[in-house]
Nucleic acid binder design. Structure first.
Length: 824
RNA sequence: GCCCCGAUAGCCCAAUGGCAGAGGCAGAGGACUUAAAAUCCUCCCAGUGUGGGUUCGACCCCCACUCGGGGCACCA
């Protein structure tokens, strides 16, 4: 088909797509980091994908949204870095490898190639020169390096602990990966296992992770901040030390209500704690205690999560002494107290804590009210009173309010050396070792004589042994253990026979700092250079799903703070702004093959074209809302793009024509669209931005057909503006329009036209006159009219005069130029 | 149970205390056409989940409730 024929043919998206891709490959409009680039920087980042097959609808939405933002800031004259890479370690590759009996590398790199090709065709504005994969040795060597830095600083350590274990994945899980008692990956019921594992000491950073959120306020979705606050779960209280009858060591409890110390009537230790076992040992209740312990151990985490199940426990026959009044408190063991929170023991104040009250009522233990809250007696109601009030039955605290009492009792306890103010956190240390193959090997050697010996940094990367010949099937121990040549080494310290650590790192380690690597992705000497970091970081705009609200975002914030302490960067928060996109659904539920409601991205692209799919995603509604594919109309998107495209063929003025004498009302529409859609994009209301573009297309159509005609400069100005604006979302169509308008590519770099403020003022606006809030008259007025002028117009208007019938209004409110409201 | 978000036309969604409708989908009619598709034009449709309150004026702010979605859930 000749170019001439093509001119008259209908808009052919497939042809246009194939036409421009090679041109863009050559122009590289999105290359960032050219030396001496004078433009201010903007780092726009999409969460990198896991290479599980080809891109799907969810990717399409996420990357379409990120692309709008990146392309917008380029049009606004910023030097935008918009990189991409692959989060390429992880279980699916390993499972696929087991199934296909081949190296997980093959599956992984094949999928990466597929996704990469799809992203190019999807016209993602990525800087392809910065790509890396976390499974590249060149990347994970820096995971190992960072691990060693953490180790040096005491932030990476091993301990024995009851850890979450997924029987499905046959590996341990971090707390964050257990959702409602289930493995977040495979939904198996997580169990507990006593194991020696590696941890990162994220709890050292709990306060900073919490307090630094102040700077994210208004920049991150409130929802994410709330979830992180809940997750860290800081509470403020006191540790109080109780002597135990017949037990040498005192036991410390943590309480947020030290003011209620006089209301303590019993004492509870976590049944699964070492302390409980110690207290029971050798006593007549030991047998009963052990039976109880067995019973609760067999209860799954799911059962434990039910908060309404009856309280249970065993009296241990011993007594704790209340340090403030010498009272003897019976000690119980129960599973309602958690072994790994606080000290694993509590003082029970049933009057003012619901859980303690439930337990007291079940075990017929006394309840003593020590705070008069004005509520009914918990003894009668069974409802603990937790609000503020006046202290009673509490000696020196009587008459004080809660806050005063807390302050006074803590001072007293501290004076007597039996307590002190303390904070506690729900957050636990991050368990980072995994018993699987496809991850970063932990760079530690275990020597019988020297203990843990770090691999020398010069020996990094410590690459994975060849998967060939290894049994990757999950069996609870790392497959690396079977790679004898790899495992058996000489101790770097003493030279004796030693073994490598056989666990690999949680893949969340990989994603905790990848955003720091993009600017230095080809640096072979360090994970990232200070110069690159200072140039590009922090990330100005991060885009991704809310599913990572806790895990990835919390870990990345933690890494950033550690690196800040190491002096490797000088900011505290990695992601200045965060946008969470919703999910793509079909008929109200998540798409999946098993549900039979899967919409294939490749099918949709084939039928409607890339631009129409991108547009549909972005136009469907607010970005954070879920999109239901049943509600969107890709054919409607195509229709709009065709309308826009057709305009570019109608323009009959020459490129470079002076717009200033163009038809004024269309010019106003153009500048208003430019102004309003920019504002909408900056406030993430992309659907609104597109509505403004549609308005301008409609207005231009009208101007061409029945207004100023196609030769008016205002028409060219409008259509050029349309091309630039829709380039954010429909880059192929925009490029084609730009060419038809007589310009050279790339439209992505054309620049957002400067808005002429004088054209944003309307000639006349409609004002309304109300009486008692009811509209009585509408008139055209100048937008610059004053309140007094408008009021005078209203009071002399025949309709209003007639309505008032001579009565004197009580009050007149004028809001020029919009309305006058007369209160009669 | 606690906390957060939402509810506007048949549907998806706009409207920063000031005329409820920007945009789209679906629908109806018309123009063009031998006809159809495409295209262009025009039109229909709710008084903002319910009940109170504040205000000259409330989709918007406050209180209570209903429904939907999400988060947390023995963390002392």
């Amino acid at each position: 088909m000749s170019t001439d024929d093509r001119e008259h043919a209908a808009y052919d998206f497939a042809f246009v797509q194939e036409k421009w891709l090679p041109v863009w490959d050559q122009l590289e409009p999105f290359k960032s980091g050219r030396p001496e680039d004078p433009r201010p920087k903007k780092y726009v980042l999409d969460m990198f994908p896991y290479p599980s097959g080809d891109l799907h609808m969810g990717h399409a939405e996420a990357y379409a949204l990120g692309d709008v933002i990146a392309r917008y800031w380029i049009q606004r004259g910023f030097n935008v870095m918009h990189p991409i890479g692959w989060d390429a370690f992880g279980l699916p590759a390993e499972n696929a490898a087991i199934k296909r009996n081949e190296d997980p590398r093959i599956w992984t790199y094949e999928n990466i190639a597929t996704q990469k090709a799809s992203m190019r065709r999807f016209a993602c504005s990525f800087d392809w020169d910065r790509v890396f994969n976390t499974c590249d040795p060149e990347y994970y060597r820096w995971n190992q390096w960072l691990f060693l830095q953490m180790y040096k600083r005491g932030l990476a350590y091993r301990k024995d602990s009851a850890v979450n274990w997924c029987p499905g994945c046959q590996t341990v899980l971090a707390n964050e990966q257990v959702v409602a008692g289930l493995c977040e990956r495979c939904d198996s019921v997580a169990t507990k296992k006593k194991l020696n594992q590696w941890y990162f000491k994220i709890t050292d950073y709990a306060d900073r992770l919490l307090d630094d959120m102040a700077q994210l306020e208004g920049m991150w979705p409130e929802k994410v901040l709330t979830m992180q606050r809940n997750w860290i779960g800081r509470s403020i209280g006191a540790n109080v030390s109780f002597a135990i009858e017949g037990h040498a060591e005192p036991v410390t409890v943590y309480t947020t209500r030290p003011d209620t110390l006089y209301g303590a009537t019993f004492f509870v230790v976590a049944a699964d704690s070492d302390l409980a076992a110690q207290l029971a040992q050798g006593t007549e209740v030991e047998k009963e205690f052990k039976e109880y312990l067995e019973k609760i151990k067999s209860a799954s985490d799911i059962d434990r999560l039910a908060t309404d199940r009856p309280k249970s426990g065993v009296f241990l026959g011993k007594y704790a002494i209340n340090p403030i009044n010498g009272e003897k408190l019976p000690i119980w063991a129960s599973d309602y107290v958690l072994a790994d929170y606080g000290t694993g023991a509590i003082m029970a104040v049933p009057a003012h804590d619901q859980r303690d009250l439930d337990f007291a009522r079940a075990m017929k233990l006394p309840v003593r009210v020590v705070v008069n809250t004005g509520d009914e007696d918990p003894n009668k109601t069974g409802i603990a009173t937790t609000s503020d009030g006046v202290l009673i039955n509490s000696d020196g605290l009587n008459g004080l309010k809660k806050a005063e009492a807390i302050e006074k009792i803590i001072a007293e306890l501290e004076k007597n050396g039996v307590g002190k103010a303390t904070r506690n956190y729900r957050l636990r240390d991050w368990l980072v070792s995994r018993q699987r193959y496809w991850g970063t090997p932990i760079p530690i050697i275990h020597c019988a004589a020297c203990g843990e010996v770090p691999v020398d940094e010069s020996q990094l990367p410590l690459t994975l042994p060849d998967a060939q010949g290894l049994d990757l099937k999950p069996k609870g121990t790392s497959p690396l253990g079977a790679a004898t040549d790899w495992v058996n080494v000489k101790c770097p310290s003493c030279g004796a026979d030693a073994k490598r650590d056989t666990d690999t790192m949680d893949t969340f380690v990989d994603s905790s700092w990848y955003f720091l690597r993009y600017p230095s992705s080809t640096n072979h000497n360090e994970p990232f250079s200070r110069k690159d970091i200072d140039t590009w970081l922090p990330v100005d705009q991060y885009v991704g799903g809310v599913t990572h609200a806790i895990l990835h975002l919390l870990y990345s914030r933690f890494f950033t703070k550690v690196l800040n302490d190491m002096g490797m960067l000088d900011f505290n928060e990695p992601f200045t702004r965060l946008l969470n996109q919703g999910m793509v659904q079909m008929d109200g539920s998540a798409m999946s093959k098993s549900r039979g409601n899967l919409v294939r991205l490749s099918d949709e692209l084939a039928v409607h074209g890339v631009d129409a799919i991108r547009l549909s995603m972005v136009f469907a509604g607010p970005p954070e809302d879920d999109v239901d594919w049943a509600d969107v109309s890709p054919s409607g998107s195509m229709k709009f793009l065709s309308r826009a495209w057709r305009l570019s063929g109608d323009v009959s003025s020459a490129p470079g024509v002076d717009f200033s004498h163009g038809e004024i009302s269309l010019r106003k529409a153009t500048h208003k669209a430019l102004h309003d859609s920019a504002f909408a994009v900056e406030s993430f209301r992309f659907n609104v931005a597109i509505a403004r573009m549609m308005e301008l297309v409609n207005a231009t159509r009208k101007a061409v057909d029945s207004g100023c005609g196609p030769s008016d400069p205002a028409v060219r100005e409008a259509v050029e503006a349309v091309a630039i604006m829709i380039s954010l979302v429909a880059p192929f169509t925009a490029e084609e329009m730009w060419e038809r308008l007589g310009h050279t590519p790339a439209v992505a770099l054309a620049g957002w036209p400067v808005v002429d403020e004088s054209l944003l003022v309307a000639d006349a606006v409609e004002a309304v006159f109300q009486i008692n809030g009811k509209i009585k008259e509408r008139i055209e007025v100048s937008p610059t009219i004053t309140d007094a002028e408008l009021e005078a117009l209203a009071m002399t208007h025949p309709t209003i005069v007639a309505e008032l019938a001579g009565a004197t209004p009580k009050k007149v409110i004028a809001r020029a130029p919009k309305l006058v409201n007369i209160v009669a």
